[in-house]
Design a protein around this nucleic acid. Sequence first.
DNA 1: ATATTGAATATTGTATACAATCTGCATTAT
DNA 2: ATAATGCAGATTGTATACAATATTCAATAT
Lengths: 221, 221
Amino acid sequence: MKIFATNLAKTASSSDIIYDALRDSIISGQIQAGESMRQAHIAELFNVSRIPVREALKRLEAQGLVQSLRYKGYVVSPLSHAEMEEIYEIRANLEPIVIEKSVANMSEETLEEAKDYCDSFSSETEASKWGEWNRLFHETLYRDAERPYHLKLVGEAIDRVDSYLRAQLVLTNGMEVAIGEHHGILEACLQRDGVLAAKRTREHILGSYRVLIDYLGNQSR
Amino acid sequence: MKIFATNLAKTASSSDIIYDALRDSIISGQIQAGESMRQAHIAELFNVSRIPVREALKRLEAQGLVQSLRYKGYVVSPLSHAEMEEIYEIRANLEPIVIEKSVANMSEETLEEAKDYCDSFSSETEASKWGEWNRLFHETLYRDAERPYHLKLVGEAIDRVDSYLRAQLVLTNGMEVAIGEHHGILEACLQRDGVLAAKRTREHILGSYRVLIDYLGNQSR
DNA sequence: ATATTGAATATTGTATACAATCTGCATTAT
DNA sequence: ATAATGCAGATTGTATACAATATTCAATAT
């Protein structure tokens, strides 16, 4: 007997759903750094008790996206310049490794999809969507790396800066440059040149960081 | 008026205490990979309800030390060879950066303390304590790095392998080598040569990985 | 004897209730 | 008027109770 069955056990728990939603809200900038998140309020939004809300918050805390003070509550973590520098340094060290491994066994479908996201990013006029296309482009290029631990760390590092960046729409300055760099990375992947893709990825990350620092410098004046 | 007061607000919550205890039990190998952790049992051990236990488990899950299956419970995460390789690769990339920064502003006290831990490790005869001395030695050398995000990632990566290694007492083979390498790293720090310390740290990590792979290869025969 | 079914038990997930702590405002004292 | 005090409400932390799901094992059917 053959039955096409979906794995019912995979239906998410309330806690999982709330975790995803809160994470989304934070990295998209809808909840900004410093904002406090009252448990009863969140529970009400989802029509659940505070228990699953608290469990979601504990996971976000472990990831560093929120901070808790006993009996005072949870707030979205602020992001210092020092920590931002650390994160870009880590990304610049880990992501080239990931893309090099990924290129080694990158499928045609992955390349196609990455090309689509690259184009979407290039032609997107609405600034609020740049972050999402950008992220999808890079995530796709890393997909075939078979380096889950690297991807977990990189993903969390990106979450951390996204929580700050998306709200600021920082990319405006560097858009033309970023588009060019994306095409360069994609080109290297199409040529199956992992080393070149790695090199360009590193430069892309360090370049983004410079743009960001420049932006923040002008901002504070 | 001056009063010497400790910050009472910092007393840990039940959830925090249980998180620490469970993490300790896992990385020391007292709870091994695959073992299931029943919430009611843990709650009973600490004389609390299951609520703070669950919150501690959620944090451990976010860190990757345990895995949960809905309605089936939590088990200590197994560690595949592939993931172990990833973790050593990450450590080999991040820890040299950390120690180089640390050496740049390393205090005399730190050097003294590191020297003590180095000696303790060298002269320890009880294999069960090697892991702890080893960890304290390296943690001390990283202390002055002012790179909290790097240290968080490195710490979690080490937690992950410790959960597997300490139970196995793998280091036996490489003890003499490890002692030599520790002295080499310490020496570089004493000379305030961050670049050399970084180089030796990287070699130390890659060397440990080779010893481990060798051990696991013999093991499976 | 083996496989299947279903009820009893165990375990996890969540809601509700209560305790501990914080916060803000009104009251009082100076 | 200003600062200190204390009470009321709000918010978090945890215990208890119940619901949802899994597991075990005895009873039954083949």
